[in-house]
Design a binder for these strands. Sequence first.
DNA 1: TATTGTTATACTCTATAACTATA
DNA 2: TATAGTTATAGAGTATAACAATA
Lengths: 143, 143
Amino acid sequence: MGAKSGDRAIHDPGREAWSVLFRLMQDHRRLVRAVWDELDITGAQAELLYCLDAKRASPMVALAEALECNASNVTGIIDKLEARGLIERRQGTADRRVKMVALTKAGQRLRARLLERLSEPPRFIASLSDPDKAALLAMLRRT
Amino acid sequence: MGAKSGDRAIHDPGREAWSVLFRLMQDHRRLVRAVWDELDITGAQAELLYCLDAKRASPMVALAEALECNASNVTGIIDKLEARGLIERRQGTADRRVKMVALTKAGQRLRARLLERLSEPPRFIASLSDPDKAALLAMLRRT
DNA sequence: TATTGTTATACTCTATAACTATA
DNA sequence: TATAGTTATAGAGTATAACAATA
């Protein structure tokens, strides 16, 4: 509609690319929320499952660090996942203060499903040609 | 060390690119949270400011749709922004049920600062060469 | 003294349902 | 009857502070 001054007068490919990517990622979040709903978990629970090791137990303090949140949150989120039988608390070290958190079999299955869904490239990547995919990967790795 | 089977045996550039981008965007979220903190707003408040028009008032029902959330949430979030003098409720249509929400001067300034910070391309884009930026933009637009 | 995990508390966000005032 | 916005309620996430057990 006849853009006047200030209305993107300067064409900066970097800013434009970021603007488009921003919107595409925002769309993608809708899909992520749908996956959470489908697996009947919340975002915080998903992130905890995501940062848990598939096979090895982690001390709670490590999870708080990985999630960049307060330790008391982790207690609450783990309470809920444990109540659903997805994870369990163990005593696993010489230091009797620490509790180790590990996925149960059911938790391992759920986490696998979560990762499988999240690792699926969104359409704006999947629909690229093979050379474009390779070029994109090279660019993103260049950082 | 010494990856066996199943450990990314298949090289799919699309999945790899998505995996790298996923991690880069996760890093970027830390920056976004820092901006929210700096402006002393929450994520939900930021999203509401983001989807408000800079100059024109919006009916609350439109905001609920834009945010894809329940109308009662919007009431709560707007209450807080209004208490801080960032937005105001007006009666603006023939239909006396609808309330129009508009940014105050302070709200316009805050929103401008927010958008300015969020529109700044993250390093993984800013550090690309100009041809790469253009190529990336072309790819993202190809969807 | 410091650290690990928990509990208590308070606030925000979220959805559902009931309500009001309009239409 | 239906819609726009509010209120009440309940649950989840979040941070802070105080606490117990252990180091």
